[in-house]
Design a protein around this nucleic acid. Structure first.
Length: 256
DNA sequence: ATGGTTGCTTAGCAA
């Protein structure tokens, strides 16, 4: 199984790029984030023509997540269903062949100390709560998406400068650690240990040309699934050319 | 130092 995750930063403006990506990389399952679209304006038809069915949790203007697969995934989670009644479309889980796959869009958090920052930390605690209630570390499961947190120094172009921001603040890193301590492995790090491999570069300040990026998009898998991973890559080329998303896709191949 | 860019929606917000 080839799994991909990609923050497309608007599904409608990125549709041609997404279709070309699907044709080039031929993933079996794709988790998308930041659709910025309601389900009613989601491009089901062109994706179906490309060979993909879609499960969508949409939202007007902001957020929105989806899971694409060759046959319609069986939905097993839409939000955390923990009574918090999150109005933001950030979490969708599905069963695909005996594996649970979730498309995850962790809040950015804006500024450390802000209301959005508190929401980010609460949301990540909610994600751990969902895992505790609805999943188990011994069943095959992958959380895939934009976690808006870089795990360690290798994942940040300038760790000292970024440690005061929402993407690499110690509290955000601890919140991510609490999620992974459920029993999840950062699959990319099973295959690459070096520093300087990023998935996101700011549109501003020539972030990509200077490779001033962060690795904030992740595939976090339970042991039985992580053990089956044979390779992981960042499709850096997808950040190049006309109208790229600010995120590159992450691809993981699993043995069957 | 609060710059710079992109997308959605139309002046301002979110990232």
């Amino acid at each position: 199984m080839r799994l991909a995750t990609w923050n497309v930063n608007s599904i409608r403006i990125r549709l041609d790029r997404l279709l070309r990506f699907l044709e080039r990389s031929k993933p079996d399952v794709v988790c998308l984030q930041e659709l910025k679209s309601e389900e009613g304006s989601f491009p089901f038809a062109p994706l179906k023509s490309a060979g993909y069915e879609a499960l969508v949790l949409g939202q007007k203007t902001y957020n929105g997540v989806a899971i694409l697969a060759r046959t319609l995934p069986e939905e097993v989670g839409r939000g955390f269903e923990d009574g918090s009644d999150d109005p933001q479309a950030r979490f969708l889980a599905a069963r695909i062949g005996g594996t649970t796959v979730a498309s995850v869009y962790v809040p950015n958090g804006s500024e450390v100390g802000s209301e959005k920052w508190a929401y980010k930390l609460d949301w990540m605690a909610g994600l751990r709560g969902w895992l505790d209630r609805r999943a188990g570390p011994d069943a095959p499961l992958a959380l895939c998406g934009d976690f808006n947190v870089a795990p360690d120094e290798r994942d940040v172009c300038d760790p000292k400068a970024w440690a005061s921001t929402v993407l690499f603040h110690p509290e955000a890193r601890r919140a991510l650690a609490r999620v992974t301590e459920f029993g999840l492995e950062d699959v990319f790090r099973r295959h690459h240990t070096e520093a300087g491999l990023y998935t996101w570069w700011d549109y501003r300040m020539l972030g990509f040309p200077k490779n001033q990026g962060l690795r904030i998009d992740h595939v976090l898998a339970t042991a039985p699934l992580a053990l089956r991973s044979v390779s992981a890559t960042i499709d850096r080329d997808e950040r190049k050319g006309e109208q790229p998303s600010d995120h590159a896709p992450v691809l993981v191949d699993f043995s069957d």
